[in-house]
Design a protein around this nucleic acid. Structure first.
Lengths: 183, 183
DNA sequence: CAGAAGTTTCAGAAATTTCTGAAATTAATA
DNA sequence: TATTAATTTCAGAAATTTCTGAAACTTCTG
């Protein structure tokens, strides 16, 4: 399968960005290719579209599956595995955020709680800083949990409220005088 | 400077997480050390606390400076550079998010716009997908820009609104019947 | 200006990650 | 059950990233 110039450039960009996103070039390219493909692709097709080894494709797909970023499909009379990305971009974003939280935040939250439990015998500053950090992360992950629960439609509304957000917050929480415009 | 067991474990954890966060072990460790230190530290002190080479410390600090994650301090009669992290954790989070956006999102947004400009001659599906992705990222970065503008106090309120958020959104945007409880 | 103190640069060494080809494994079909 | 097709595993090769020590540079001080 030869790539169109548009696909080509998109795929190469995702490959290059891969390292900044915590995945490798191949994984980025495979994902990009699937993302732009209207039909599910099998490993063989991916291998030759990207000019990589068959084993590299296999590992890349395994990695993408561990991120829940691809869906497996089958066709009657063909026993090869075919892969796609979800049509719904919001679903993709939700997965991406959930997985990054799991890998980048949760382990640290666990570690911070551990460190607080075991105490510190006189290292008061460090203990306070760790505890403050743990609280902040808990607040943010709590907020994330709420966002996660919202239907896409509400999420879109929230995101497009623009300048109205500040006022809303104030109304919802009994505005703190110093923050309101009048007085 | 010998580390307390608490500092030690925190520093090692941040070192290990470094690779998942897109920085290297040393950079993670230096940051962790500064974060827990009540006083600014100079390069020499960092070097021996972490048992790394002086040049590695220099590179790590440079990297942290490029992320705007450390502040430079000086003391009278001492011409060495001393480094700290901000006391305010919210400031740290804001910086972190801004820098990650700059490195992980902005280049892709630019690339997507480029690809849309140059068109595609018949690759309709890819073109539609790219355009949809670009729109979604624009919506999210627009929302980020709004959040970014909020004072920390309002941000905290928003994050701790809990279950009230859905109702708020509905009220603010003339609730969509299908989403409200009544009817 | 000469020397000392502090910092950065940089080429190569060390470590780590990614990728490949070959072999092994799994599963379907004859 | 033997054969074929598809996929995975894995040891080592290749590429990349990180780290170090030595040299270069910068800035201050006597």
């Amino acid at each position: 399968m030869a790539l169109t110039p548009l696909q080509q450039e998109f795929v190469l960009h995702f490959g290059e960005m891969g390292s900044r996103w915590g995945i490798n070039r191949t994984v980025g390219q495979i994902y990009a290719l699937l993302f732009l493909s209207p039909k599910p692709l099998n490993a063989e097709t991916i291998t030759d579209a990207l000019a990589i080894s068959r084993s590299n494709t296999s590992m890349g797909l395994k990695e993408l599956q561990s991120w829940n970023l691809v869906r497996l499909r089958h066709f009657p009379g063909d026993r090869r595995d075919y892969f796609t990305t979800p049509d719904d971009l919001w679903e993709i974003v939700r997965t991406l955020v959930a997985e990054r939280k799991k890998r980048e935040i949760d382990p640290t939250l666990i570690k911070l709680r551990e460190l607080e439990m075991q105490g510190s015998a006189g290292d008061d500053y460090a203990e306070a800083r760790i505890s403050e950090l743990r609280e902040l992360i808990e607040m943010m992950t709590g907020f994330y949990d709420e966002m996660e629960k919202l239907e896409t439609e509400r999420l879109v509304k929230l995101m497009t409220l623009g300048g109205k957000i500040a006022g809303l917050i104030d109304k919802a929480s009994g505005a703190f005088p110093a923050l309101t415009k009048r007085s």
